[in-house]
């Protein structure tokens, strides 16, 4: 009962805030709505018995990534930029985009409702996960079965750091 209530409340908050991200004029409000969207998502992850992912969601997304976004918004002094609503060169783009967005949602909804969730069950039932511990399980899998992708991820982050550094530096000089 409590679970259903939490799902409905958090799902509603999430969708409303996601709409706020897209339709707010001021980017700083968009960023704040995005933070609330991610926190609501973290609650949904807890409902799905993925506690580690929920904590990482709050720390990485709502913490690190959004701080980066807010920092860049502040850095770029948004007041000067916010004339985007003025001249609209692609006249029917918004209407068409919303129409096809609704079409996409209809397709996703129909496919989801029509399909029957089946397939072989794995070995990690919620009881077993809570017995071992979600974080321990993620750690164990990450350092055994998924050790190679894990190392690749470190290379990816390294490349992204260097790329961001070089891009920002080049922009400063010119």
């Amino acid at each position: 009962m409590l679970e259903s209530l939490l799902f409905v409340v958090m799902g509603t908050i999430m969708i409303v805030c996601a709409g706020g991200v897209v339709f707010q004029k001021n980017p700083i409000y968009s960023a704040i709505f995005l933070i609330q969207t991610m926190v609501s998502l973290a609650v949904l992850y807890v409902l799905l018995h993925a506690q580690f992912i929920a904590v990482v969601q709050v720390m990485v997304y709502a913490g690190a990534v959004m701080v980066l976004f807010v920092f860049v918004i502040m850095l770029l002094n948004i007041d000067k930029i916010e004339e985007e609503m003025g001249k609209d060169r692609l006249v029917y783009q918004k209407v068409t985009a919303i129409f096809f967005g609704l079409l996409l949602f209809a397709v996703i909804g129909i496919v989801t409702l029509k399909s029957v969730l089946q397939g072989t069950k794995g070995e990690y039932t919620p009881e077993k996960i809570s017995e071992i511990g979600n974080t321990q399980l993620v750690g164990k899998l990450l350092f055994t079965d998924y050790i190679f992708p894990f190392e690749i991820a470190s290379i990816l982050l390294f490349a992204a750091t260097i790329g961001a550094l070089i891009l920002a530096k080049k922009g400063l000089k010119e």
């Binding site: 993925a50 969601q57 794995g122 039932t125 891009l167």
Partner: peptide
């Protein structure tokens, strides 16, 4: 599916998203 693989994938997607945000924001700046 009572399997942990999806959660591991979420972990990697978060890595990619963080890298994407860093590079994208650097491009914007």
């Amino acid at each position: 599916h009572e399997s942990m693989d999806g959660q591991i994938f979420v972990f990697f997607i978060m890595t990619v998203a963080a890298a994407e945000a860093a590079v994208g924001l650097a491009i914007v700046v």
